[in-house]
Design a protein around this nucleic acid. Structure first.
Length: 407
RNA sequence: GGGGAGAUGCCCGAGUGGUCAAAGGGAGCAGACUGUAAAUCUGCCGGCUGAUGCCUACAGAGGUUCAAACCCUCUUCUCCCCA
């Protein structure tokens, strides 16, 4: 007796959206073994301990982890606190901050809050890699480093590029893959999940497991989700991301801003829409029978529904259509209480109070550029004084619209 | 250990004593156009200000000078060549 689905069925589900599996045969074998023995596979993925602001890019692999869970397998979410506590000043001028134990734990909590929007809390194990790295002495560490060569390390594309471009690579960064690979040894991972950019590291995990006489893990690679800018991979630092904790309205707008060419990718990697349906969507867009916008709107709703309630998706859509298509003022506006003291207030001050601008200089420019309206009337003079009316609506561009409550 | 080159605004990058808040490009923001996006065009793009005015800024600290991103000294960091 066992609770697993037939291997063929498991494979079909897992293959959807997957970029590369090294190797499919091995995965199948492991699944078969698991099926017959009733032992779940150990699926592992590592995460950086800093910047715990998850977005759809992270969600691609996490959602795949979720599928493994649904199939009854065991997911280990590894937080790379060990290297995070060391800190790494490499990678051009950007310094990876050195995190304290407390910060790491705090970040881990934030991770949990976000990641359990996707993963099953009861079936997820969270581990910190300081648990095993912290115990290692230098002898064991050196032994680990002896298992790989510099030349092979330099094979990694981004090392090679940076090396050839004369950019710095710190020793820590260089050793990082080795430490990550050892995580797979410590956890006896059957599968390691990652984005394409992790290929090298995950392969190294396989190799190092072999060195320690452990059955090598299957490398499970998902494509990288391109960000809303349509060129770079989604990342927080490039601000081209859709955060899984973003407000529905923001998610909607962000999704609508992706280039049309990315619609199919997003359907595949960021939603649960079945593959067959995606194929027909792709066809319809390609032959021009449907305005891509329509599928993009549905995409936005699908994504919002994964992280919010269905009615939030409808609301976000209405808000978007009102603001951007009809250029009108939505009903549901953030309200800002402003104390006028019965005096007219300079428009720039009002904009500051609402948080719509970060400096008066910016405000002045926006007014001069025709972006600012009060009660639908364009303000053309940045010295304008605003009367404290009961019904007061401030528009700063299309995105920032507020209802002002004088007090 | 020796020798050489370099660190400029969000990013790339020009500037080598005053005309520099600093060319140019990218990104971003706003406006026009529009079927969402894109493309195109226009404006903006350190802060304060009514201002032709002030403040902060060219890795950091100090110095020379009426005047410094630019010259000098030290410090920190990076790359290259040789060992």
């Amino acid at each position: 007796m066992n609770t697993f689905a037939p291997v063929k069925e498991q494979m079909d589900l897992l293959l959807r959206g997957a970029l590369e599996i090294i190797s499919e045969e091995e995965l199948e074998k492991k699944l078969e073994k698991s099926y017959s023995s009733g032992r779940p596979l150990i699926i592992k993925q590592g995460f950086d301990p800093s910047a715990p602001d998850l977005h759809l890019g992270h969600a691609v692999t996490i959602r795949k982890l979720r599928q493994f869970q649904q199939l009854g397998h065991h997911v280990i979410f590894v937080i790379g606190d060990f290297t995070g506590m060391v800190g790494d000043p490499s990678g051009r001028s950007k310094t990876r901050p050195k995190l304290t134990r407390e910060e790491v734990l705090e970040n881990a909590e934030t991770y949990k809050a976000q990641v359990f929007k996707i993963l099953d809390r009861g079936k997820t194990e969270i581990r910190f890699n300081s648990e095993w790295h912290g115990k290692k002495d230098i002898y064991q560490f050196l032994e680990l480093t002896s298992k790989y060569t510099v030349a092979r390390m330099l094979e990694r594309d981004d090392f090679l590029n940076r090396y050839q471009a004369g950019e710095p690579i710190s020793m820590l960064e260089f050793l990082y893959p080795l430490l990550q690979a050892y995580d797979s040894v410590a956890l006896k991972a059957d599968v390691e999940m990652g984005g394409l950019d992790q290929k090298f590291n995950l392969l190294l995990g396989r190799k190092i497991q072999g060195e320690f006489n452990i059955e090598p893990q299957v490398v499970f690679l998902m494509p990288l989700l391109i960000g809303t800018d349509g060129t770079q991979k989604m990342s927080k630092s490039l601000d081209n991301y859709v955060g899984i904790c973003d407000r529905p309205e923001d998610m909607y707008g962000r999704v609508m801003s992706i280039p049309d060419e990315l619609i199919v990718d997003y359907y595949t990697l960021a939603t649960d829409v079945p593959a067959s349906e995606i194929t027909s969507i792709q066809k319809e867009i390609a032959n021009g029978s449907v305005n891509p916008m329509e599928y993009k709107q549905r995409l936005a709703r699908e994504i919002i529904e994964l992280y919010h309630k269905p009615e939030d998706a409808i609301r976000a859509e209405n808000d978007f259509l009102t603001r951007f298509r009809h250029r009108e003022i939505p009903d549901d506006l953030p309200e800002v209480e402003v104390s006028f003291a019965n005096q007219p207030m300079p428009i720039l001050d009002l904009m500051i109070v609402c948080g719509s601008i970060s400096s008066k200089g910016e405000g002045r420019r926006l007014v001069q550029g025709g972006a600012v309206k009060v009660n639908r009337e364009k303000i053309s003079d940045f010295r304008a004084m605003i009367e404290p009316l009961d019904d007061l609506i401030l528009q700063v561009g299309k995105r920032k619209i507020y209802r002002i409550i004088p007090s």
